[in-house]
Design a binder for these strands. Structure first.
Lengths: 104, 104
DNA sequence: AAAGCTACTTTGCTTTACCAAGTAGCTTAT
DNA sequence: ATAAGCTACTTGGTAAAGCAAAGTAGCTTT
């Protein structure tokens, strides 16, 4: 019963939600997650999530030079992604309400 | 991004919490979950969770005849289970608060 | 005796988070 | 100038857990 399992499924929605706030890139997303309290998310965890979202057409990608370091891949949410995010939020709300009814 | 992933990790804590309310058995837990809104949890999903909790010493088991149908295995929470449930609740709260900060 | 509810078990599958390591651009300090 | 350190992304292997499907079986009702 570790945190990894609790995070499953939640992380993907959170990453999508962060991208929905405006164009951003992997490293910055990592910092946003950490700022929200989801610390200890490794790069090897985050980047596959991003790749999945991209392959699924929920976000789109654009390469651009960084003013500080190697090239960045900037991501924006797509229309399909916006829809998927709404669906996710609804499902999250339903499940978390059920869980809280049982737990507390 | 289906419900299965969202449920991961949550289910085990919910089952433990239901058992914490008083001695109960598999089939009844299934109905309690459904009543709380966690429908469509199959037997093939629930019973492995129970087995895991039992093997981990978080619940204890007692066999008894059912007034209606085959023999039941009644489960009660152990002291270790009570502790584990408290830990789980704390971790769940932390993660769900982070998630909600990002999502809503 | 057939149907249907109760009750638990088992097998194989898929998804996804994690760890570890690697590649590489750029800046700052010694 | 070179080593350290931050930025930035990639890849490979592992383990956990929910799910579908099927099986076994006791008991009641029609």
């Amino acid at each position: 019963m570790d945190n990894a399992q609790l995070l499953k499924g939640i992380l993907e929605g959170c990453v999508l939600s962060i991208i929905a706030r405006g164009e951003t890139y992997g490293y910055e997303i990592l910092q946003d997650l950490e700022a929200a309290g989801l610390a200890d998310i490794g790069e090897g965890t985050l980047y596959p999530v991003i790749t999945r979202l991209d392959k699924g057409g929920l976000i789109s990608c654009r390469r651009a030079k960084s003013p500080l370091g190697p090239i960045r891949k900037y991501y924006s949410i797509t229309q399909a992604g916006t829809q998927a995010l709404e669906d996710f939020k609804a499902r999250y709300k339903a499940i978390s309400q059920s869980a809280e009814k049982i737990l507390f």
